[in-house]
């Protein structure tokens, strides 16, 4: 078996070298296909992060009655904290609300001067795990003792959630489409390579090479090409991150634009796996036609 592995390795290396142009064509096709897929994946990650950060800003405001007793306030706080949909509850006292109000309008002292510090209600600000549950949580808190009014984004928030939902669906479709395109492109490249060597395969069959003996070098080649393609694609995407996204992030601070190097590495392994799987299956499939009889 050691001898055979030697043969396969030699054969793979010499075939890759001998068909430099074909190898280059295959590697560039693989890397372009995977690059496309990778860009969609990274873009998807950035978009998802952005969308999640918008959704994370969705909060419930539970305004309290001025006459609410401290017990009622406390009970309300622990009730909200106990709800499974709730991530975090902040209490904002009348004084804090007034401070916040002053801060918001610090450029227009006329507005703040005429406001009584007691005019603003105390409130609970509730952060939710899933913004979609806002309406349900709001209706449960509405009417509890001490509660004056529960506010949440309402229509505007519903629209935001609808939009983010659409964004996610488009992302999934884009990934499926680019994955499909990558599979077709890579499989086609493999088929071309095999077609270019059909004569060799015919001779191998005539002198009595077993199908596996014919297949293995092609699969090795497909794997090497896929690995090179994935590496190239990931390197380009990494360059895109460093020179594109990271710089954009520095300029646009309010949007979370970056992807971590870790997720690029994860993406490299994903692309590598996809490339290898397509390489192995593609070459086996394409070879089937030439291996018959």
């Amino acid at each position: 078996m050691a001898l055979r592995v030697n043969y396969f390795v030699d054969e793979t290396v010499s075939n890759l070298r001998r068909n430099v142009l074909l190898t280059l064509a295959a590697v560039s096709t693989v890397s372009i296909s995977l690059l496309l897929l990778g860009v969609v994946m990274v873009g998807g990650e950035v978009l998802t992060k952005m969308v999640s950060s918008w959704e994370g800003k969705v909060e419930l405001n539970v305004f309290l009655r001025d006459e609410a007793t401290p017990e009622e306030v406390k009970a309300l706080g622990s009730q909200a904290n106990g709800m499974p949909e709730v991530e975090k509850v902040f209490f904002e006292s009348k004084e804090q609300a007034f401070e916040e109000y002053k801060r918001m309008f610090k450029d227009s002292p006329a507005i703040t001067e005429n406001v009584d510090p007691n005019a603003l209600p105390a409130s609970y600000r509730i952060k939710l795990k899933d913004p979609n549950s806002a309406e349900a949580v709001a209706s449960r808190l509405q009417g509890q003792p001490g509660v004056d009014e529960v506010q949440f984004g309402g229509e505007a928030m519903k629209r935001l959630l609808k939009f983010t939902g659409v964004v996610r669906t488009i992302l999934v479709i884009a990934i499926i489409l680019t994955l499909g395109a990558a599979i077709l492109l890579i499989a086609n490249t493999i088929r071309l390579g095999i077609y270019a060597r059909r004569k060799e395969i015919g001779i191998m069959k005539l002198v009595g090479a077993t199908n596996w003996f014919i297949r293995v070098p092609f699969i090795f080649e497909g794997t090497v090409q896929a690995a090179l393609g994935a590496l190239l694609a990931s390197a380009l995407i990494y360059a895109g991150k460093v020179f594109g996204l990271d710089r954009m992030q520095d300029a646009i601070l309010f949007l979370p634009l970056t992807v971590s190097s870790g997720s690029i590495i994860r993406m490299f392994f994903t692309l590598l796996a996809i490339g290898i799987v397509i390489g192995v299956f593609g070459s086996s499939l394409a070879l089937r036609r030439f291996l018959e009889v």
Partner: peptide, 29 residues
């Protein structure tokens, strides 16, 4: 098998063409 059109591999030398028949059936070096 011998054919009218020879069926030799154009990118291999005489020695490699003949050796190929042994390599692909897994004969040792």
């Amino acid at each position: 098998c011998v054919f009218q059109d020879f069926k030799l591999l154009a990118n291999k030398t005489v020695r490699e063409n003949v050796a190929f028949a042994l390599e692909v059936i897994g004969r040792p070096k």
